[in-house]
Every structure is written in structure tokens, then in C-alpha cells.
């Protein structure tokens, strides 16, 4: 998998303190599981601890294939921790301990014989801050394919173009592929990172607040892009912006403080008539 894994691990480790909780309770949650598309990731009884602090509490969730699933909740609720568990990014945090299962198409990604690097090719990730490598646009996108050793076996130019087209960036950069990725605007940089994430053709793309550092125009392009990506990929996105979750996702999972998954249902249901009064209070701003 490409380098952002390492870049972001440092950043995510620094943020992890915010997600620690003070009390430890072992709870097996019953969570609604929306019907619909087939399940690509089946999370079972997943708990995460940072040292002795529990950051995620017995979360079970079936994530539908080729849909957008949004994870929302207040700061420290465990949604980013949950996201990182899906492609074992938490392995990079020494203090983190994970219990439970995360099955990708039937295989537990935490089995001993699963190579985390290979896993991250199947479950790519895009982070909050655009983090292109200090390389050309072309090399940013080609990086993952070269690391995989595929560059000699495939038409690399064609694959780079495919990824850039899928990330809705091709038309803007096709005549300047040698230009440094760092010279692009913030929104373009983020789409370059998305192109880099999809170049190895993953099955799932994780996004951790991918538009929070962007202006409204760049944000709308990312949102349109996410909608397009869901035709081919499963997208799981953490966002603090509830309107964004409402706009772009098919399913929404609501985490509340303490690492508890409180409700998981169709996005329309969550935002129009949530079943759990705590979700109602959170999305209407009464939670606090």
C-alpha cells in the first residue's frame, strides 16, 4: 500500500488521546442493521482499548457493499478509532488493543495469516488533510502500483489515467502530470490522494473527514466524487458535518461518547426519525 499509511499513522497517534475515555464498561450492544445491499464488512463485537481505556465498546455492524456509510458522533466517540480498525491502522498504535472481529467478505482481517499491508491495498484510506507525496502528480498515483510490483505488468499510464478520471481530476491535470502534487490546490490535492487510494483498485475506501479542510466548492466536488465512487467501491466516511453525512451517505452510524454505536440505519431514517432519543438529541443539537 502507498505511503499515506505511515504518514497518517503519526498524525492519528497524536490525535488518539482525544478519543480516550475514562470509564470501562463491558457492554454488548444491540444495534439496528439496515436491510439492503449485501454485506462487505461484517464487524462483530469490536472493542478497542488504548492502554486500559476503552475507546470502542462491543460494536457490531454490517457495512453494505458499494454504498456510502457515514460515521457520525461527537469528538471522542470512537468513530475514527472504528474506521482505523477496518484496515488495521490501529496496529500502528502501540497502545491500541483490539478485540472482536472485522470480516472482509468472510475473512477476519485480524487473523494471523492476514498481511496488514496487503489488507490496506483492499481497504484504502483518505485522510483529513490532503497529504500528497512530494512527487509529481503521475508518481503520486503510480506509487501504490509500483510498490505492488505491478508496474511492469500493466499499462501504468492507462492505470494512472483511470485513477485520475475516477477521482474527477484528470481533466484538470492531464497536461501537467509532471507537476508536483504539492502545487495543486487543497481540493485538487485531496482528489489526488483519492486517486492514489483507488489506483490499486481497492474494494473499500475509508475517508476520515476528507473535506473538513476544504472550501465549499472543493467540498462539493469531493461530495460529488464520493457519490460517483460508490458505484464501484464501498465508501466509509467519518464526518463531523451532519449535513454532509445527510447529503452523501446511504447509511449512517451514530456513535456517542464512550465508544458506543447507538444507532445504524438508513440515512433518511437517522435524520428524519431516529429511533434512539440520544440520536435525536445529538442531531438536533440538544446533546451536550
Amino acid at each position: 500500500m502507498s505511503q499515506p499509511t505511515t504518514d497518517s499513522a503519526t498524525e492519528e497517534t497524536a490525535e488518539s488521546d482525544d478519543r480516550l475515555i475514562e470509564t470501562e464498561v463491558s457492554v454488548s450492544e444491540t444495534v439496528t442493521q439496515p436491510a439492503g445491499a449485501s454485506t462487505i464488512i461484517d464487524v462483530g463485537d469490536l472493542s478497542v482499548y488504548y492502554h486500559d481505556d476503552q475507546a470502542l465498546r462491543s460494536v457490531s455492524m454490517e457495512i453494505p457493499e458499494r454504498q456510502v456509510t457515514a460515521l457520525i458522533g461527537p469528538s471522542g466517540c470512537g468513530k475514527s478509532t472504528f474506521l482505523r480498525c477496518l484496515n488495521r491502522m490501529n496496529d500502528l498504535i502501540d497502545a491500541a488493543r483490539v478485540d472482536g472481529t472485522v470480516e472482509l467478505l468472510g475473512q477476519n482481517v485480524y487473523d494471523d495469516d492476514v498481511d496488514p499491508v496487503a489488507l490496506r491495498r483492499r481497504i484504502g484510506m483518505v485522510f483529513q488533510e490532503p497529504n500528497p507525496f512530494p512527487k509529481s502528480i503521475y508518481d503520486n498515483v503510480a506509487y501504490g502500483l509500483r510498490v505492488q510490483g505491478k508496474a511492469d505488468d500493466i499499462d501504468l499510464d492507462a492505470e494512472v489515467e483511470r485513477a485520475l478520471r475516477s477521482a474527477a481530476l484528470w481533466d484538470e491535470v492531464k497536461d501537467q502530470l509532471d507537476k508536483s502534487g504539492l502545487e495543486l490546490s487543497g481540493g485538487q490535492q485531496q482528489r489526488l490522494c483519492i486517486a492514489r487510494a483507488i489506483a490499486p483498485d481497492p474494494e473499500v475506501i475509508l475517508m476520515d473527514e476528507p473535506a473538513s479542510a476544504l472550501d465549499p466548492v472543493a467540498t462539493s466536488k469531493i461530495e460529488d466524487l464520493i457519490d460517483d465512487l460508490a458505484e464501484e467501491y464501498t465508501v466509509i466516511i467519518v464526518t463531523h458535518n451532519m449535513q454532509q453525512a445527510a447529503r452523501i451517505s446511504d447509511k449512517t452510524a451514530v456513535f456517542l461518547t464512550g465508544g458506543e454505536l447507538v444507532e445504524f440505519d438508513d440515512t433518511q431514517t437517522i435524520f428524519e426519525n431516529p429511533a434512539d432519543p440520544r440520536v435525536e438529541d445529538y442531531i438536533t443539537g440538544k446533546f451536550g
Binding site: M242, E272, N273, P274, I283
Partner: peptide, 9 residues
């Protein structure tokens, strides 16, 4: 204010 849920209704 983008009301939601019961507020939106």
C-alpha cells in the same frame, strides 16, 4: 439552522 429529525418535522 438546518433543523433535523423532530425539529425538521
Amino acid at each position: 439552522q438546518q433543523p433535523l429529525a423532530s425539529d425538521l418535522r
